[in-house]
C-alpha cells in the first residue's frame, strides 16, 4: 500500500478546500470500497480526508413531506429508519438487499453513490481498463462480461454501477446536495452519474473536490406502494445481476403514476423513462408491464456473455409491477 497522509477536517468547507488543493486526495467515509481498492493498488490517494465526524449523520423529516438524509448516515441506520420504512419501502428494501450486515453498518449514503464498478478488469491492475488507466483499453469489452452492461455502454467501457441504493434513489427522484469548491448546489440523482462515452474515467458530473453532504427525497405518497427486486447469483452478499426499483400509483386499474429504475444494466442507475411512458395512463396488466419493459430494453446491446440480462430485467419488471398492482396501497 502506498503511504498516505490522513486529515480530519473541522467542517465541510475545510474538507472541500483541502481536497481542492490536493489532486491525489480522496474522501474517506465508510471505507468499504476505497480501502479495498487501495489494497489492490487501484486507487492510490496520498491523502485521506476523513469525513466521518462531520455533522452529516442525521435523517430529517422535511416540512411538507420528504426526507433529508445526511451523507454519512450508515446504510443499516437508514434502512431501519421509521420514516424510510413507512414512506419509502423501496429504499429500505434496496439497502437491505445490499452487501452484508457488517458492511451496511459502515457504508454511508454518500459513499454508496460514489462507489466504483466491480468489473473484475477494473479491480485488477494487471489488466487493461480505460476507467482505471485511460487509454489502456477495455479488457471487458471482448472478455468475461457476464456481469456487465447491456445498455448505454461504449467501446471504451462496459462497466455497470454496482449500487442498489442508487437504483432506489433514481426511482424516487432524489436530489443530491453537494458542496463544491464553488459552493453548494443540488444535483438530481438522475444527473449525478455519467454514461461511459469517451471518458469512462469520469464517473460523475461533480466538480473535483465535491463532497456529497445529503440526499433529499421528495414528498411522494405513491412511494408507500413501492418495491425493490434484486436477483443475484446466491441468496445473500452478492451484487445484482438484475434489479428493479418500482413505485406504482394506480387509480382503479389505471396507472396514474409510475417510477421505474434498473440496476446492473448500465454505467449508472438506469431510470426507465420509456417504460414509464408506456405504462402511464393505461390499464395495468402484466402484459402491459412486459411491453413497457420491452420498450425500455429495445436499445439493449448485450455483450457476449450477458444476453440473459435482457429477459431477466423484463421478467423482474413484470413481477415487481404486478405484485405492486395486487397489493392494497397502505393507508
Amino acid at each position: 500500500m502506498r503511504p498516505f497522509r490522513y486529515h480530519r477536517p473541522a467542517d465541510v468547507a475545510e474538507a472541500v478546500a483541502v481536497l481542492a488543493d490536493e489532486p491525489q486526495a480522496a474522501y474517506l467515509a465508510g471505507g468499504t470500497n476505497l480501502v479495498d481498492l487501495m489494497k489492490l493498488g487501484v486507487q492510490r490517494p496520498d491523502l485521506l480526508v476523513d469525513v466521518n465526524r462531520l455533522p452529516l449523520d442525521a435523517v430529517e423529516e422535511l416540512p411538507g413531506g420528504g426526507l433529508r438524509i445526511g451523507a454519512t448516515v450508515r446504510n443499516s441506520d437508514l434502512a431501519a429508519h421509521p420514516a424510510v420504512r413507512r414512506d419509502y419501502p423501496v429504499l429500505a428494501r434496496a439497502l437491505l438487499a445490499a452487501a452484508s450486515g457488517q458492511l451496511r453498518n459502515l457504508a454511508t449514503t454518500g459513499g454508496n453513490l460514489l462507489q466504483r464498478t466491480r468489473c473484475v478488469y477494473f479491480q485488477d491492475t494487471g489488466k487493461a481498463c480505460n476507467k482505471r488507466e485511460p487509454g489502456s483499453g477495455c479488457a471487458a469489452r471482448h472478455g468475461q462480461n457476464r456481469d456487465l452492461a447491456v445498455l448505454d455502454w461504449s467501446d471504451l467501457c462496459v462497466a455497470t454501477h454496482p449500487s442498489d441504493l442508487a437504483v432506489a434513489l433514481a426511482a424516487l427522484d432524489a436530489v443530491v446536495e453537494v458542496h463544491e469548491p464553488a459552493g453548494p448546489r443540488d444535483v438530481p440523482l438522475a444527473a449525478l452519474h455519467r454514461s461511459p462515452g469517451e471518458h469512462p474515467e469520469r464517473e460523475t458530473t461533480l466538480a473535483r473536490g465535491a463532497l456529497i453532504t445529503a440526499v433529499r427525497l421528495p414528498h411522494l405518497p405513491a412511494a408507500r406502494r413501492s418495491a425493490y427486486l434484486k436477483v443475484r447469483d446466491r441468496a445473500s452478499f452478492a451484487f445484482a445481476v438484475g434489479s428493479v426499483a418500482a413505485v406504482l400509483d394506480l387509480d382503479g386499474d389505471v396507472v396514474r403514476d409510475v417510477r421505474l429504475a434498473y440496476g446492473a444494466v448500465a454505467h449508472r442507475p438506469w431510470r426507465a423513462y420509456r417504460a414509464e411512458e408506456e405504462l402511464r395512463g393505461r390499464a395495468f396488466s402484466p402484459q402491459l408491464a412486459a411491453r413497457a419493459a420491452d420498450a425500455e430494453l429495445a436499445e439493449a446491446r448485450p455483450l457476449r456473455h450477458n444476453g440473459f440480462k435482457v429477459p431477466l430485467t423484463r421478467a423482474i419488471t413484470v413481477r415487481a409491477l404486478t405484485e405492486l398492482a395486487e397489493r392494497t396501497p397502505a393507508p
Binding site: 457476464r146 436477483v231 447469483d233 445481476v241 402484459q287 412486459a290 429477459p311 431477466l312 423484463r314
Partner: peptide
C-alpha cells in the same frame, strides 16, 4: 447451475 442457464422457463405470453 446459474440462473442464465435456466431463465425463461415460463416465457410470458
Amino acid at each position: 447451475i446459474r440462473l442464465d442457464k435456466l431463465i425463461g422457463l415460463s416465457p410470458l405470453a
